[in-house]
């Protein structure tokens, strides 16, 4: 009973805040609505028992991706009212695309009724969620049976890192670089000296 109420609460909130993401006039507000949508999606994940995915949604999407979105919004120097000028012009095309996608969703949703969802076939792999927590079940498979794709995912992250540096990093002049070796070989006597100035004469620096 509580689960049903919670489901409808989260589901309605997700849809509403997703709608507000695209209708909000201020892009910063859009990002904030997006964060709300992520939180509610995390709630939905919890309801189906996928704890780890729910926490990932909060940690990665809310904690990192949404922050990146905010940065990007703040970095762009765009007149947003001008950007909206084309709205009416592109409206027919946008509505057409939206309708096609809606039809696909409806039909694919209808398919749920038509054919059975054969999740029974995967019982050989998935342990009973009541016996083993979700995250542990995931861990036992991810690092052994799915080793290949796991390391592949590491490479994807590596490419993302190289790509970000190649595209946005440029060497700047006058950068005060950290020189670890110089820091390490520096001794107290190089940096400080004891003086004993007589009263009234001051210190020569």
């Amino acid at each position: 009973m509580i689960q049903t109420i919670a489901f409808y609460l989260f589901a309605i909130m997700v849809v509403l805040s997703a709608g507000l993401v695209i209708t909000a006039r201020n892009p910063v507000h859009s990002v904030l609505w997006l964060i709300l949508a992520f939180f509610n999606a995390a709630g939905l994940m919890l309801l189906v028992g996928a704890e780890f995915i729910a926490m990932l949604l909060v940690i990665v999407y809310v904690g990192a991706v949404a922050v990146l979105f905010l940065f990007v919004v703040m970095m762009l120097d765009i007149d947003f009212s001008e950007l909206r000028g084309g709205f009416v012009r592109y409206l027919p095309f946008g509505v057409a695309v939206a309708l096609v996608l809606l039809c696909e969703i409806v039909i694919a949703g209808g398919a749920w009724e038509a054919g059975p969802v054969e999740l029974a076939g995967r019982t050989a792999l998935a342990p009973d969620p009541a016996a083993i927590p979700n995250i542990q079940a995931l861990g036992t498979l991810l690092y052994t049976r799915y080793l290949f794709v796991f390391e592949g995912a590491g490479l994807v992250l590596l490419v993302a890192m190289i790509g970000a540096i190649v595209l946005t990093h440029r060497a700047r002049g006058g950068v005060r670089q950290q020189n670890v070796r110089r820091q390490n070989i520096r001794r107290p006597q190089d940096a400080t000296r004891n003086t004993n100035p007589p009263v009234g004469q001051g210190v020569e620096l």
Partner: peptide, 27 residues
């Protein structure tokens, strides 16, 4: 932007550590 991207990458790396830590005994 660069800082944020690097943060996301290492955030994801950390996310992969949780299931690994709890299932290390089995794997």
């Amino acid at each position: 932007y660069l800082v944020a991207i690097l943060f996301i990458i290492f955030d994801l790396e950390a996310a992969f550590l949780y299931p690994w830590a709890v299932s290390l005994r089995e794997i």
